[in-house]
């Protein structure tokens, strides 16, 4: 056995990586860092040289399906009032594996019957496992997973049970972070509404 030859061969590999960083930097002069193309290149199949993403100055682009903490969607009415999409049906609370969702239902003060809107909605983010089930199984597309991950805090006791106010986000925000999903769900909803309208029209026509 040529003793030491294997080590030398290995060192050649590290040397190759070392030189590669300069070659790569030279090829890109000035454009490799702090540009979106640079970040994309560094996570592509051709990545070589320095692999580091310089967080916080530059951040890795978050893929659309990325999930962190859930949030609730509201639609903005004409006067800027918030209409929750949530109907407090409780499927998210039932399907939540660590059971971190609490929903307080509303009752009509006159009739005493439940109103399809939650009074309060709590998520304990110290229990939440970011599995995305609530968003996946919600029949009203009322709860979705957020992309925001920079949530570190100094105090959990006051801050880490999120209430409805903290969880609520507008539909526009959702459309912005998950455009493909938003478009798909909107298409389905519009198709359903059209179908309903067509049926209603057909019924009206049949009556006449």
């Amino acid at each position: 056995m040529n003793f030491g030859f294997g080590i030398l061969r290995g060192l050649m590999v590290t040397m190759g990586h070392f030189i590669g960083t300069f070659v790569e930097d030279f090829k890109w002069i000035g454009k490799r860092y702090y540009t979106p193309e640079g970040v994309a290149h560094r996570s592509s199949k051709n990545a070589s040289g320095i692999f580091t993403v310089q967080y916080p100055e530059e951040k890795l682009p978050v893929p659309e399906e990325f999930r962190f903490i859930p949030f609730l969607l509201y639609e903005e009415g004409p006067d800027g009032e918030q209409q929750d999409r949530c109907t407090s049906c409780g499927i998210c609370a039932k399907v939540c594996p660590p059971q971190c969702i609490w929903i307080v239902r509303t009752e009509d003060p006159d009739t005493g019957r439940p109103v399809p809107e939650p009074v309060e909605f709590y998520i304990d983010i110290d229990i939440c496992m970011n599995c995305g089930y609530c968003a996946e199984y919600c029949p009203f597309d009322a709860i979705k997973m957020d992309h925001q991950y920079e949530l570190a805090s100094y105090d959990r006791h006051s801050a880490h049970i999120y209430n409805k106010e903290k969880l609520s986000m507008s539909v526009d925000y959702y459309a912005q972070i998950r455009p493909t999903n938003y478009r798909r769900e909107e298409d389905i909803r519009i198709a359903k509404e059209e179908e309903k309208a067509a049926k209603a029209a057909a019924r009206a026509a049949a009556k006449e």
Binding site: I69, D126, C128, N130, Y149, E150, L151, A152, S153, D155
Partner: peptide, 13 residues
């Protein structure tokens, strides 16, 4: 001192 939520938090978090 500091709590980082997430399960698991990404390296950037």
């Amino acid at each position: 001192d500091v709590y980082v939520p997430g399960c698991p938090p990404t390296p950037q978090a």
